[in-house]
């Protein structure tokens, strides 16, 4: 059982996809204008990740190695479409405020990264928990960033007013430049306190966000990781 717990905490803390691995930056920056948006995006991504992880893990013995990428793409894209349809039908507000960033979950590095690096090699149960851990880790990160931006940019968190009425919101924080700035400060803090993160491995600047290469991300990671 401990193996499963380990998977959960791994995704939540040790290898938090946003704070530690620095993956999936597009949605992280784009949708975190509010805590609610962050939560919606995080959970949608988590569902896609869990479903894709489980399916790929279940099929891992049948997937021919040569065509595994198209295989992953088909499965992940289907999951994303299903999630999108469900959102449209039952929680249209979320679908509306996230717009094209929902279908763009398909190209989120976190999904391909996990499917390729973990689910394609491990049992269904473990992959399930890996997906849950990573998905929740991503969700929590987005909610934290979203709350921060919403607090400074609008004075609210989850639409509840937190700041006193006299607080003049700094609108920039809910605009694009604010997204970059918040992340800049966040990573600077990680550097300062030498927290484990992809950003403060000094000599590997070029490998940030996998050097832009999501599909082969894990090949680079593998070289660095000793366990597994």
């Amino acid at each position: 059982m401990n193996k499963y717990l380990e998977r959960l905490t791994n995704g939540l803390f040790k290898e938090n996809p946003t704070f530690v691995l620095m993956l999936g930056m597009c949605p992280t920056l784009a949708v975190t204008v509010s805590a609610t948006n962050g939560l919606g995006m995080g959970l949608s991504t988590a569902v896609v990740l869990v479903a894709s992880n489980v399916i790929i893990a279940a099929l891992r013995k049948f997937i021919p190695n040569t065509v595994r990428m198209p295989y992953f793409i088909v499965v992940v894209a289907s999951m994303v479409t299903i999630v999108q349809l469900l959102l449209q039908a039952y929680v249209p507000e979320v679908n509306e405020s996230l717009g094209i960033y929902i279908p763009l979950i398909v190209v989120n590095c976190i999904i391909f990264g996990r499917v390729e690096a973990y689910a394609a090699k491990n049992k269904v149960g473990l992959s399930l928990f890996d997906g849950i851990g990573m998905g929740l880790g991503f969700t929590i990160a987005l909610v934290i960033i979203g709350s921060f931006r919403e607090l400074l940019g609008a004075g609210t968190i989850f639409n509840y007013r937190v700041m006193p009425e006299s607080y003049e919101p700094i609108a920039m924080f809910v605009k694009p430049p604010g997204a970059f700035l918040v992340l800049a400060v966040l990573t600077a803090l990680q550097n300062k306190f030498r927290l484990p993160s992809a950003t403060n491995k000094k000599d590997k600047v070029s490998q940030l966000t996998c050097g832009g290469d999501c599909l082969n991300c894990n090949d680079r990671e593998k070289a660095e990781r000793k366990e597994d």
Partner: peptide
């Protein structure tokens, strides 16, 4: 020191 690497890139992106 704190801003070297990724953070300063993001600050640049902000501007």
């Amino acid at each position: 020191e704190t801003f070297k690497g990724f953070p300063i890139t993001l600050v640049t992106a902000t501007l």
